[in-house]
Design a protein around this nucleic acid. Structure first.
Length: 653
RNA sequence: GCCGGUAUAGCUCAGCUGGUAGAGCACCUGAUUUGUAAUCAGGGGGUCGCGGGUUCGAAUCCUGCUGCCGGCACCA
């Protein structure tokens, strides 16, 4: 006998080996029909799985949020069956559930095309209609390997070999088709339903390793019902509308062109955004940091000393005089980072322990030769500007400096409206420099700091650990923010470095007169200004808060009789420091409103004959269909107040 | 870098199986003086990404390169 506890806390006894399906059937016919799985102590399991011990039991129906994972997983299996039915000889490899859907990686000599997707979908619907039951079998390793080998499924043989000793080799069967899988699955393919769609084909390396063969991946999305599917597809459309590359063009912010892959042409409005961001950051740094500027090109020998030439040569640009006859034939590197330059500044002149912590900031333009396939609008470019800083400090000051940086980063994000932040600690990677003792120490300090960050936020800031993701020279914190449509972006970083100061022989004179190597902390808040602006564009969908908007106000008229007054209004707006422009074109107000709305100008100030007589203005805000009449003076002062950057605003009462 | 797709006017796109380019918007000109998301009429604009090839003839077919797009890998 086993004791099963139901969601209502009632406990009932069953014979050991009873299945979830039997229990559901015992409760009601309709439940048996709706059930797709059971949860035993919260873990999903097959309905047909014999239950062997006491547990909390829930019958999971198709509308349970947990069923979604099963729907997607089952859909992946059905897709694999469909593909093998359509193109025999195609090998199946792995097919996991991912956020919003699933994929399956196939090995086929002929690649799939987008036109294949509807064909596969159709076949999937057939299989789903058949409604074959998913059944589990446990095979011996040898049996499984022999079976897949006979079928030419060599990838599956590798997967069987990868199953840890002592774990069962499980096979799930649906009709005539079967797959190696750890489960669980729903009762039948019919439970997948019809709310799925194949989205795209893409290449993917076998086991995620670029040294391996490339397979073809088919991505799909699947939902519990059509409404959810539709909502998801709609969300994708909305995300596309706020794509920064599209808005960059539509709002005339920047462009790229063929001669400069991965480098940005900032147009006036985009550059205004850029400058607003830099000015804001400068104000935030003014109190604690010294801003410097290190050279753009430096002899490659310096990069050899720093280690970059060895580690990242394939990602660096080199420069030389274009004239082969030039006297100086040395090879220079376009800086990919600011740190070596900052160490040179630190080294210039003797530093005392009294100078520490020394915080050196730079809005440094760096260039990195990114792989061609990696570039993506402003998000991944070859030339970008870092809001970089290096803090030279003592071992003892390290933890406090990390916390100070943390406060600054969180407060900056807050000012841009990002409230959901995750701080992740990345620990030692396989390829690294420095002794294990050094890493042990640095990681333990940072673990404590991470805990403190979590504690002092009162649980608001989430933390995480990314094993092996640290930089080669030290562990790091990565700051990830969540945007308006729920996407996560890693922006800020704090990295401890016990490599570079030593390599360059940087030191300070300590209290006892001895030379000591300082600890160096690299930190960035926005990371790349270009990328951060890309994130802001998408986050706000181009609808910037007033303090950031490149053009804050457009003054426009209804008839030319108001032109004179409109000029006066413009002058007052400008005098109040607003970025304002005027539109006196002989066009209908509808036309002008539409145009400026599409250009995403936050404030349209309309002046007609009436306003001119009354010395008022009519304000229409972007996104609103309403207008607010206001006295001119009042409009100017309220807009000017709204346009003050968050860091300059008087603290809230 | 790898796999696949793609490149036609400033933008969005059409151009079937090869017969020397077309629309809408934008732009320019004229008319219209207009009350909150497109006033009307006229006009100009493209060596069809770049280089080879096939062909009597290439935007269209083949091929190389480049950019871009979607993934994968990478991201100091």
């Amino acid at each position: 006998m086993i004791h099963l506890t139901f969601p209502d806390n009632s406990v009932r006894d069953f014979a050991a080996g009873t299945t979830g399906a039997e229990i559901a059937a015992g409760i009601s016919k309709s439940l048996a029909k709706k059930a797709v799985a059971v949860a035993l102590d919260g873990a999903l399991a097959d309905l047909s799985e014999p239950i062997t011990g006491d547990a909390r039991l829930e019958i999971v129906t198709r509308d349970d949020p947990r069923a979604l994972e099963l729907i997607r997983h089952d859909a992946a299996h059905v897709m694999a069956e469909a593909v093998q039915e359509l193109w025999p000889g195609t090998q199946v490899t792995i097919g996991p559930v991912i956020e919003n859907g699933f994929y399956y990686d196939f090995k086929r000599d002929e690649p799939f095309t987008p036109e294949d997707l509807p064909v596969i979908e159709k076949k999937m619907r057939e299989i789903i209609q058949r409604g074959d039951a998913f059944t589990k079998e446990v095979w011996s390793r040898e049996e499984a390997k022999r079976f897949f080998l006979e079928r030419g499924e060599t990838y599956k043989v590798e997967l069987v070999d990868a199953i840890p000793a002592g774990e069962d080799v499980k096979i799930y069967r649906q009709g005539d088709w079967l797959d190696l899988c750890r489960g669980p699955h729903m009762a039948s393919t019919r439970q997948i339903g019809d709310s799925f769609k194949l989205m795209k084909v893409a290449g993917a390396y076998w086991r995620g390793d670029s040294d391996n063969e490339m397979l073809t991946r088919i991505y799909g999305t699947a939902w519990a019902n059509d409404a959810e599917l539709k909502a998801y597809l709609h969300m994708l459309e909305e995300a596309e509308k706020r794509d920064h590359r599209r808005l960059g063009r539509e709002m005339d912010l920047f462009h790229f062109q063929e001669e400069g892959p991965g480098v940005v042409f900032w147009h006036a409005k985009g550059w205004s955004l850029f400058q607003s961001l830099v000015s804001y950051m400068r104000r935030r740094l003014a109190e604690d940091y010294d801003e410097v500027n290190a050279p753009q090109i430096l002899d490659s020998s310096l990069w050899e000393t720093s280690g970059h030439w060895g580690w990242y040569k394939e990602n660096m640009f080199s420069v030389q005089c274009a004239d082969t006859e030039a006297e100086d034939t040395r090879l220079f590197a376009l800086k990919p980072m600011n740190c070596p330059g900052h160490v040179q500044i630190f080294k210039h002149g003797l530093k005392s322990y009294r100078d520490l912590p020394l915080r050196m900031a730079e809005f440094g333009a760096v260039h990195r030769y990114e792989p061609s396939g990696a570039m993506h609008g402003l998000m991944r470019v070859r030339g970008f500007t870092q809001d970089d800083a290096h803090i030279f400090c003592t071992e003892e000051q390290m933890a406090e400096e990390c916390l100070k940086i943390n406060d600054l980063i969180l407060s900056v994000y807050e000012d841009f409206g990002f409230h959901e932040i995750v701080v992740k600690l990345s620990t030692r990677p396989e390829k690294r420099v420095g002794s294990d003792e050094l890493w042990d120490h640095a990681e333990s300090v940072m673990e404590k700091v991470l805990q403190q960050i979590a504690d002092q936020s009162g649980g608001r800031i989430k933390t995480d650990i990314l094993p092996g993701e640290g930089a080669f020279y030290g562990p790091k914190f990565e700051y990830t923010l969540r945007d308006a449509i729920g996407r996560e972006w890693q922006c800020g970083t704090t990295q401890v470095d016990f490599n570079l100061p030593e390599r360059f022989g940087a030191f300070y004179v300590d209290k006892d007169g001895e030379k000591k190597t300082p600890v160096m902390i690299h930190r960035a808040i926005c990371g790349s200004m270009e990328r951060f602006l890309g994130i802001l564009i998408e986050n706000f969908a181009g609808h910037f808060p007033l303090w950031l908007a490149p053009q804050q106000v457009i003054v426009t008229t209804i008839t030319s009789e108001a032109d004179e007054y409109a000029r006066e209004v413009l002058a007052e707006m400008k005098a109040a420091g607003l970025r304002a422009d005027i539109d006196l074109r002989n066009e209908k107000i509808n036309y002008k409103v539409r145009e400026h709305s599409l250009a995403k100008v936050p404030v349209i100030v309309v002046c007609g004959k009436r306003e001119a007589e009354e010395r008022t203005v009519n304000i229409r805000r972007l996104g609103s269909k309403h207008q607010t009449p206001m006295a001119l003076a009042e409009a100017v002062s309220s807009l000017a107040e709204e346009a003050v950057a968050p860091d300059l605003r008087p603290a809230a009462e």
